[in-house]
């Protein structure tokens, strides 16, 4: 199963290395990782997407909790939450397709953040499914390059166990 885990950490140098070392040292996989400061600049939050059987996920959350610099670990699997990811996609459509591409982008509420003679760069934000769908749709136009931020997640108000 794929899990989105949020890790609240002390904003100290070397923390990222402790977390990534925990994953690599024990053979766990990180599918995506995003890091940023919280409202308290002394604390950062990492959002990690990982896959594993229940036993592996249990070890991952316990091992994360064991790290001295980790303040809190939340596995969103059990929690009603909102997930978002952003992608920047550079597409180089044929001249006759440029309008069509802009239309597709609009349907997905994408924003054109750069346009040139041969390329458009589209910014798309949303859940994973939406992003995957958009990528599929623009593939025929000719994707030159794309970058993803990795997922971030936040619990909904009045957090309840989803189950």
């Amino acid at each position: 199963m794929r899990h989105t885990i949020s890790v609240l950490v002390e904003n100290k140098f070397g923390v990222l290395s402790r977390i990534s070392g925990l994953f690599s040292g024990r053979g766990y996989n990180i599918e995506s990782l995003s890091v940023g400061e919280t409202i308290d600049p002394a604390v950062s939050v990492m959002t990690i997407v990982t896959t594993g059987e229940d036993k592996v996920i249990e070890q991952i959350t316990k091992q994360l909790n064991k790290l001295i610099d980790v303040i809190k670990v939340v596995d969103f699997m059990e929690i009603d939450h909102v997930e978002r990811e952003m992608v920047l996609i550079k597409v180089s459509p044929r001249k006759e397709d440029r309008i069509e591409l802009l239309r597709v982008a609009e349907i997905f509420r994408g924003r054109i953040v750069d346009s040139g003679l041969t390329t458009f760069t589209v910014e798309i934000t949303g859940e994973e499914k939406k992003i995957e769908a958009f990528i599929e749709l623009v593939k025929p136009f000719g994707i030159k390059e794309f970058v993803r931020t990795g997922k971030v997640a936040i619990a909904r108000e009045g957090v309840k166990k989803a189950k």
């Binding site: 070397g14 290395s17 402790r18 070392g21 040292g25 001295i68």
Partner: peptide, 14 residues
């Protein structure tokens, strides 16, 4: 040495 001993200490400091 902080990097080297990260996986084999309970914690380390520079």
């Amino acid at each position: 040495i902080v990097g080297i001993t990260r996986p084999c200490t309970k914690h380390n400091f520079l």
